[in-house]
Design a protein around this nucleic acid. Structure first.
Lengths: 217, 217, 217, 217
DNA sequence: AATGAATGAGTCTTCATTCAT
DNA sequence: TATGAATGAAGACTCATTCAT
């Protein structure tokens, strides 16, 4: 079972861009600082110093401090998410998993890994959402059309095969996402377990969800 | 079934304090501004203006901008949370609910209501946690001793009566909390449904949880 | 030989005034704080707190912060100095000291004691002079007319009796004052010797001055 | 007889530093303003305006208002004083003055000139000492080791040649310094004589001191 | 492209002063 | 007379941004 490695995706974004080494340093350092201490608590001079460049250089490429933030978030929105989503859906299709609990286990592990490997970007993203809730709409819009029909189909398949309760898609998705979040969020915010067992966790959670979402007798 | 009304608790905190009307206005306005646009994005002059007082007045009582934040958060930590927890536990005891799904339904409605009624404070609290994750430890320490044993007892009772699966307390709690969050967080961050049906939601969620947490056959 | 005790003079000033106990506390505390940390570095709220009165009370009597300063300095200018000068001159007259070195010894001890006993007021005064050099003119004008003729007479007597060199009064006075200052200033600024022997010092200094100011052979 | 010209030393400090023209203007203007109206009475916006720079520029280099003060005082402590002391001692050695009164005359003129040419810095320094008396200890520690032995040797030579009374070095030094101060301090605080005759003054003072410090018959 | 000195609007904070009680 | 809450002008300092080199 192959799992998305999105750690590479940020670096891939860096490499794909025609940014100089210094500009990449600026972006990379900004990601870490924004994640660690928040956008507002990070000054551009701090970024310059940490990146080992002059203050002018920080603005040469990204124009404004907000430009840096967008340079971090936009790829997530524009490329990472859709790409991941497509990849993800394709993989699911390819896997042709017919057992619902196995399906869940696969999905949970994949998404937990994704989240844990992109902690920094997610943290920055989360902070930004608090400030600008409309972001989540943008995100949803991008993923929704892509996923909805697909997910709907998948759910309907499992419902047809008598493995999934006949609730609205949104409700079922809510419980699944909520369960993922309940594992991942604490890990991201505070490093509780440094060696968090994704496999075990996704297995446990899949079992719980499969039963909670089983059709009523 | 009586539900905690904690909207009153912030105002009660205000009234209990010997703050003047203007100081209360400062605190009240700060709560809203911090929740709406974040601590760092709210200037003290903005607070002063919104509260209809001079900028000096803001600092007369609270000394620093951080002092205002503490004046909002500390009561939550020191009084509201423990008090709510105690009340909550007492009510559960009094209710003597023997059916697990009914128990869940009760708990979910109570906590969802609590969260929704204190959106502002929770939002400020959440933002502060991102900045200072140690806060959650403080919170947990305060609630833990109070709840742990009690919750453990309750879970063990349901396990003894064959209504609850034999998983670790922390895991069971994780799924319950995760489910609550999956309903409440979107509501708090973005006002999706202005008329969110707590009763329906807690009923649905209770059914889902009760089945997911039922003992294995 | 009786020496001026001007420590009492400040308190006498306090008592002579029809200030309430609280107002006296304000003045007294201000003197100490101004001397210790400077006028500009002392806030009126600090004074209020140290005096154990409300902030309003500080202004009730003295109107402004500068008013407090004047209430400390003016008496020195208006009463203490002239009074001391008069007393001093009278004493000198009464003492009828014919030996120049004895005269110097007497004068030095008297003035050193005066200075040491009024360290606080002198320190405040000194600080204020830096800020407002015209003050020294005011002081000089007040003392000059009073002293000049008298001192001139005395010096001329000692010159006539062949004990004092025939230099201008201002020059002779300069050396005497300079010598006093060389002993007293270090004591006031930094408490070098906590037990400074005024008697010994004035005796030594008198010997030095008497010889330095002896007529040329 | 060549006399230290220390007016140049502040400017030399400026030139030695790699400060931009604007930063030098800030320092130069600050020196004058601090001297004229005191550190606490000088606002950073006032400095910026007088230096013809923005307020940000003032802080870019010196970080804090206190940083400006240190940039003015530290060179005096770290370089000017020791350098001057060394130069001074070397000159004295080179001069090989055997007559005590001539020696005093030389020393007095040199030091008076030094003081008068650095009025501003001395005034700032003096104000700072009132606020932070420990500064004088720092100063003394720096000069002491350098001078003590040397001065002690010189005094002992004059004592051996029967031109200097057998008093403790500290006492002799006190009278000399006191006499210098009696001439210089009034000049610095209030510009009494704009055309003050250093040569005449040092000559007069040397005569006075030489006699006052002559050995007892 | 990179630098870093310079900018100035904006931020938090202090403080002398006032005034209703 | 005394209080202390309230004021608002002014202060030190920060920081995103610009521009000449």
């Amino acid at each position: 079972m192959q799992v998305n490695n999105v750690e590479t995706l940020f670096q891939k974004t860096l490499q794909d861009s025609d940014l100089t080494a210094k500009q990449q340093a600026v972006l990379s350092v900004s990601l870490n600082l924004f994640a660690a201490q928040g956008f507002d608590r990070t000054s551009t001079s701090e970024i310059a110093q940490a990146a080992g460049v002059s203050e002018g250089t920080v603005f040469k490429q990204f124009k404004t401090k907000d430009g840096i933030l967008r340079a971090i978030i936009d790829p997530v929105l524009d490329q990472v998410i859709p790409m991941a989503a497509t990849e993800f859906m394709t993989e699911i299709d390819a896997a042709k998993i017919t057992d619902f609990e196995n399906f869940l286990s696969y999905v949970l592990e994949d998404r937990m890994t994704f989240a844990l490997e992109n902690q920094q970007q997610i943290k920055v993203f989360a902070q930004e959402i608090i400030r600008q809730p409309s972001l989540i709409q943008v995100l949803l819009n991008k993923v929704q059309t892509l996923i909805t029909s697909k997910v709907g189909d998948i759910f309907r398949n499992f419902q047809a095969s008598g493995q999934l309760v006949d609730w609205p898609v949104s409700q079922i998705a809510r419980y699944i996402v909520g369960t993922i979040v309940s594992y991942v969020l604490p890990q991201i915010l505070f490093q509780l377990d440094t060696n968090f067992d994704v496999k075990q966790a996704s297995h446990d959670a899949a079992k719980f969800l499969a039963r909670g979402l089983a059709p009523e007798k």
